[in-house]
């Protein structure tokens, strides 16, 4: 059911011109899709961290990301002049916790301003299993329903 160019339509609607251009320049469909997903998760992570929705003004095109071809490449955050969070120090990281899943992590570092966020995010990961959670699920089930 997937339509070719779906990503490009969304990109043109939500992304900055520079981001759209980067995706368009990608070598093939697969590369375009991966770039799109990386940009999307990063953008969503940022608006989530700042506490505004995707559709809330000034939208997703008031800031951009400059990405290299690989997930582990540096992520350059480019806030526009109208972006409320432009003075803050944001750090981003992309992870692939399991195959086929992409996670974008966004941190606002305390007491720092933009340009001072040179240190990469140190991320400690822990995987739980459903068994770990079941006991707690029993306790809270009456309240979550």
């Amino acid at each position: 059911m997937r339509k070719a160019g779906n990503e490009m339509r969304i990109a043109r609607r939500y992304f900055t011109e520079a981001e759209t251009a980067v995706i368009e320049r990608a070598s093939d469909e697969e590369a375009r899709r991966r770039l799109f997903v990386r940009m999307w998760t990063l953008k969503e992570a940022y608006v989530k961290a700042i506490g505004r929705g995707i559709g809330a003004p000034p939208g997703l095109s008031s800031f951009g990301f400059d990405l290299g071809p690989h997930v582990s490449d540096d992520i350059v955050f480019l806030p526009g002049d109208n972006e409320p969070g432009r003075h803050d120090a944001w750090s981003f990281r992309l992870l692939e916790p399991v195959d086929g899943s992409l996670a974008a992590l966004c941190l606002k570092r305390p007491g720092r301003r933009r340009g001072e966020e040179k240190e990469p995010i140190v991320a400690s990961q822990r995987f739980s299993t459903l068994d770990d959670v079941l006991e707690d699920l029993v306790k809270i089930l009456p309240t979550v329903k």
């Binding site: 969503e44 086929g100 899943s101 966004c106």
Partner: peptide
């Protein structure tokens, strides 16, 4: 650090790209 914020966004993209692309919006 009380002044800091963290957020995470997770997307599943390998198995059902069309759904993810659509759900993205």
């Amino acid at each position: 650090h009380r002044d800091s914020h963290a957020s995470i966004v997770l997307l599943r993209f390998l198995q059902s790209p069309s759904r993810n692309a659509r759900s993205a919006s």
